[in-house]
Design a protein around this nucleic acid. Sequence first.
DNA 1: GAGTAGTTTATAATGATTCTAAAAAAGTGT
DNA 2: ACACTTTTTTAGAATCATTATAAACTACTC
Lengths: 132, 132
Amino acid sequence: MKYIEKLRNSGLRPTKQRLQICEVLFNTDKTFHFTINELEQKIKKQTNNKISLATVYNTVHAFEKKGYLKQIPINSSEAYFDTNVSDHHHFYDLKEEKLIDLENSDVGPINILKKINGKKIKSVEVLVKLED
Amino acid sequence: MKYIEKLRNSGLRPTKQRLQICEVLFNTDKTFHFTINELEQKIKKQTNNKISLATVYNTVHAFEKKGYLKQIPINSSEAYFDTNVSDHHHFYDLKEEKLIDLENSDVGPINILKKINGKKIKSVEVLVKLED
DNA sequence: GAGTAGTTTATAATGATTCTAAAAAAGTGT
DNA sequence: ACACTTTTTTAGAATCATTATAAACTACTC
Ligand SMILES: [Mn+2]
Ligand SMILES: [Mn+2]
Ligand SMILES: [Zn+2]
Ligand SMILES: [Zn+2]
């Protein structure tokens, strides 16, 4: 199975629960954005199986650390994650509280002119807030 | 006093506590970034006076709503606010957990090519994460 | 000054996230 | 398969930032 490698790379053994989480996260062409609670709901629906919240949190964080998921910087009471780990940007619809992908080509090149001594750039992320 | 107007514009009466909060927030040439807890500490030091957390939260939120403060979108357990309400961007030093201003001129123009039907752009914010 | 509406405060409630420790499962060697 | 060790899952508790509450206090109006 293709998920076993992802799990092992993340330092996790391929257990039944973790493979189910992988199914929901990665068994789709489309990438998507989610909160932990949305993910838990999706797992319950898609697999008719409840996985404890702690396991969902742990697995998501391990994938995030390894780079198989990323967290989107946003002001919300809940953390938003993204299965699209390519460099890209986001609209945030304030009314709907939903993220929408913005490809790099939708934004154009961003050149950071200022430098900070002894630090290097890890990521550059654009958040475009939308209102009606 | 210059703060009375800011407070009235925000729908707040100029009370002793709120004026003290204004002193700490606005009585300086330099703008700065803060969390609610950092602000509370600053108030205690600068005015030798404890103001209840609820009042600090309420006042900050009223100023934010009116546009005298803004919140910076970032993944942190605490919300970060900015007394610099001009359009600008940020470095985020992951090690120090500190924000650093990036002026618009340090980033260059950003042109969002994608449009979302029925929505308009409220803000465009760039977050540049820094590591060692 | 009396009356009213807004404010402050301590404290409680909420809710996302993290921690804990016991039970369950998986891996290892024989 | 069995005994033994290590990892994992889980329910529930703990944490902590934020928000809500409601009683005491203060500011504004007439
Ligand atoms: Mn994380
Ligand atoms: Mn706010
Ligand atoms: Zn995305
Ligand atoms: Zn700033």
